[in-house]
């Protein structure tokens, strides 16, 4: 099991708000699934926030980047699970998806960049690089721009978990 980012538990005891479960192959039949899922979940979890529209838009943007990363980089078969939880004003998103060793290493490298001292520099480099962005750009953005805490972990069933904890508004009702 990969050591998570400090303070993030890969098995949080928080109650589930929403849990979506689908086959990774079905998910990857259409790019717009990322947008649809992120928009749907964002709307569902935003109703009791201080400013539901602003929160929903930020949440959707963050979740979409995570889903796009998984869409591009994942193992060949198995379930994709998306579980969202909340503790006060901390929102926790956990994506669990099939991942072979090569896939896991991609995320391992990306998370190392996010949690490194020069994440902001790496983010700007990736943002203005000539090559099209890879999975790390969205994760770097979450870490640098959204102040998200990110972690990964290896599951025994051949899947991996990608966890993000975000604070999208200062005070919630």
């Amino acid at each position: 099991m990969q050591a998570p980012s400090e303070g993030i538990s890969l098995n949080s005891g928080l109650p589930q708000m929403i849990h979506l479960d689908l086959d990774i192959k079905d998910f990857c039949t259409d790019w717009t699934h990322c947008d649809l899922m992120s928009g749907y979940i964002a709307r569902m979890v935003s109703h009791n926030r201080l400013d539901s529209l602003l929160f929903s838009n930020l949440y959707s943007s963050a979740l979409n980047e995570l889903l796009e990363a998984v869409y591009r980089t994942h193992g060949s078969s198995g379930k994709l699970q998306c579980a969202v939880q909340r503790d006060g004003n901390v929102d926790r998103i956990e994506l669990t998806f099939p991942a072979d060793e090569e896939t896991y290493k991609v995320y391992e490298a990306a998370i190392a960049k996010v949690n490194g001292d020069n994440a902001e520099t790496l983010y700007l480099e990736a943002l203005f690089a000539d090559a099209e962005p890879d999975a790390s750009l969205g994760l770097l953005e979450l870490g640098v721009d959204y102040g998200a805490r990110l972690a990964i972990g290896r599951n025994e069933d051949g899947r991996m978990s990608l966890v993000a904890e975000l604070v999208l508004e200062d005070d919630a009702e």
Partner: peptide
């Protein structure tokens, strides 16, 4: 512009530069 992913931003940023 309500939503924009990094693919789009990367392309737009490059174009503006």
């Amino acid at each position: 512009l309500v939503r924009m992913n990094n693919v789009a931003f990367h392309a737009f940023a490059g174009k503006i530069l």
